[in-house]
Design a protein around this nucleic acid. Structure first.
Lengths: 248, 248
DNA sequence: CGCACCGTTGACGTTACTCAACTAGAGTGG
DNA sequence: CCACTCTAGTTGAGTAACGTCAACGGTGCG
């Protein structure tokens, strides 16, 4: 395993890109100062494993930059992604010693880490953290349930369209964008990672992407660069109702 | 919709069967008294809809007795169960006005309800409730992720075996049981509900149950009464590793 | 009795998986 | 510069698993 940068300068919390969305979002200045003292940054290269399921995990963390995946693997190698970790998402469960999932960096990844013990102690006397974590966990639960509908009931084509819509939406919100006109983004996942996300094989993913391309729902340049000429058309392919099926 | 009993006597919290597992588990005597004053019981008959997705929801609740399901339906009628609500489980999301899922009583159902506004106000000054709710939500998230693996990667046979194992385990823990010897329980779900749980059709469910019966993994009396002569054998059919695949 | 509901089973169709060959780029080294 | 290799991705042919459609059995109920 490549040695990850040992010298990483911490952001100042005030400048932190995820300051108002992460687990610390509700913290006051003094609480932030307390967190600031205990935090430490870690970075991982694309493809590196952050944690193996079953490993002892002595920290919790927020994703600051980059993308990671949360996944489960069966004995015979079948794997299912169960979470996609984007900036501001939280990793680790207070009160749990042992990681339940594999966490793998998909891109270069920077995490803002806290040793578990001190973090838990701070949680005990800082309601803002627990409140925010509850809110975030409820959101994740909603996302997981949306995902369950996808896994259990959607066709391969609908699955791909849904994934593209999710990525497109996220990218759009990130670039505070022009949701109305055509959307352009790069797929952050390999075909295999998409397959693990969607409960498909990579061949099926490839075929369905080709089909969507052939049908003009998307335009591809290279393997990863996607243009969606008509977002509503894409939404129509997801199987969800008009608004995109997000829990209301 | 049949009129549900208008006169339901509330349990005394002290005698409540879910006292130490529900959202109120950590509450002190005085906090409990406050809850006691605002709570009200509602019952529903088997098959009755508790809430429709999209409805305004002005209460939150704990399941006291009985079973309910949480599910999503697509426009064309495909439906996926996304939660199975057992005694002590919590229904409703603080801070959300509109229900995101259909909640349907599977058996006769008793719920301990709180109007949302007062409950939220109480949460604000009672950390014990938020703490417990966070814990419960994290557990649900783990269960949802286990379920995602099932939906995305397991075969029909493994799905059925997994569901039977889950029900068996729950029943065993409820009857503080004899997990070692043979296990007997009644399926609380119709074949159709199982299909919605597992992302299958009811015919496939029926066929796989027949196959497990034929292979001696289970013994059926009538349609619903199940005996598992060898629980380890059943676990072997789930595709999980020996311990049953629960997050550790 | 007739009906509704739940469940089973069979025949057949479709979707997505498996196995395999092949292409396109990116990097490496002579 | 040209092989050579590696990885990611595409595509095709054949197949297995599950879905669809349909018939039928048992049970409970008005």
């Amino acid at each position: 395993m490549a040695l990850s940068e040992p010298f990483i300068k911490n952001h100042d919390c005030a400048d932190c890109p995820i300051r108002h969305r992460a687990v610390c979002a509700r913290c006051e200045t003094d609480e932030l100062r307390e967190l600031e003292e205990m935090k430490f940054y870690r970075t991982f290269e694309a493809g590196q494993t952050v944690i193996w399921s079953g490993d002892r995990m002595d920290f919790v963390a927020s994703v600051v930059e980059g993308i990671a995946t949360l996944s489960q693997t069966m004995e015979d190698g079948r794997t299912q992604m169960v979470g996609l970790l984007l900036p501001s998402d939280f990793v680790g469960r207070p009160g749990r010693e042992i990681a339940a999932y594999d966490v793998i960096a998909t891109t270069t990844l920077t995490m803002c880490c806290f040793r578990k013990k001190p973090f838990e102690e701070m949680m005990a006397h800082t309601p803002h953290i627990g409140q925010r974590l509850l809110e975030m966990t409820l959101d994740e639960l909603d996302a997981a349930r949306e995902w369950m509908l996808l896994l259990g009931r959607k066709t391969a084509r609908e699955k791909i369209a849904s994934l593209l819509a999710i990525i497109a939406r996220r990218d759009a919100s990130l670039k505070l964008a022009t949701t109305r006109r055509k959307i352009v983004f790069d797929l952050p996942l390999t075909r295999e990672a998409m397959a693990d996300y969607l409960g498909l094989t990579l061949e099926t993913v490839s075929r369905q992407i080709s089909a969507l391309k052939r049908d003009g729902v998307i335009v591809l340049e290279g393997k990863r660069h996607v243009t969606v000429p008509d977002f509503d058309r894409l939404l129509g392919e997801t199987g969800d109702d008009a608004d995109g099926g997000l829990p209301t």
